[in-house]
């Protein structure tokens, strides 16, 4: 049975720490130092969103209370400053997600282009509906708002430890191919319409931008 994933599970409830005792890896510590250096010395709060992205990458693709507390401690911010930002932005997951977070755009251009067929194919192939995560924790399916690739509609974004990649010009056939590619544990970037620059990871890269 798929587990139901809704934002309401977290928002409105008193969040509880899970006692995960999280620590940054050595590379993440270096990244954080470089991220903070982008902003004026007194403005390290600006690093909050980039560091939350990093935390999500480090700690299994979602932000537990423990992860948010770690971010708060790292940037010397009150916990609420982190929590209010993490709950405001769609890309931050407040509940666990699968290894591959499949986000299907169903906004106007994709809707006209046939996002219904994409959602239907996903449901037939995996048994998952919008908001579900499978028991093996491989996939999470989310319908999302416009991802800004409207001339390549319909499209989806697959987020994993490999980053987030756009898979465009989808059909039912291509959606099946993508799912079987991912079931083999492969990198979604192989199927992306825009391969990223080989050495630049916008979330962790230490040389990035400076």
């Amino acid at each position: 049975m798929p587990t139901i994933r809704t934002e309401a599970v977290v928002v409105g409830q008193t969040p509880k720490a899970l006692g995960l005792n999280l620590k940054w890896s050595k590379t993440a510590e270096k990244s954080i130092k470089n991220i903070i250096a982008r902003y004026p010395a007194t403005q390290s709060r600006s690093a909050l969103i980039p560091v939350l992205h990093l935390a999500q990458r480090e700690f299994d693709g979602w932000l537990s209370v423990d992860a948010m507390q770690l971010v708060a401690d790292t940037l010397e911010l009150p916990y609420i400053r982190v929590y209010e930002v993490a709950t405001f932005y769609t890309m931050f997951n407040l509940v666990p997600v699968g290894k591959y977070h499949i986000q299907v755009c169903t906004n106007c251009a994709c809707l006209i282009g046939g996002s219904d067929a994409v959602m239907k194919t996903i449901e037939e192939e995996t048994g998952l509906k919008n908001g579900d995560t499978d028991v093996k924790n491989l996939f999470t399916i989310t319908e999302v708002e416009c991802l800004g690739a409207c001339v390549a509609a319909p499209m989806m974004q697959v987020t994993s430890t490999h980053g987030s990649h756009y898979l465009t010009h989808l059909t039912a056939e291509k959606t099946k191919e993508i799912l079987s590619h991912l079931k083999k544990g492969k990198n979604p970037a192989d199927l992306a319409d825009t391969p990223p620059a080989p050495d630049v990871d916008p979330i962790t890269n230490n040389k990035y931008g400076a």
């Binding site: 800004g148 990649h165 756009y166 620059a197 630049v200 990871d201 990035y208």
Partner: peptide
Amino acid sequence: GEYYDESSRLGQAIQ
């Protein structure tokens, strides 16, 4: 934030 591949290329351009 969704423009991961795009900002990766932009990052390379800046470097």
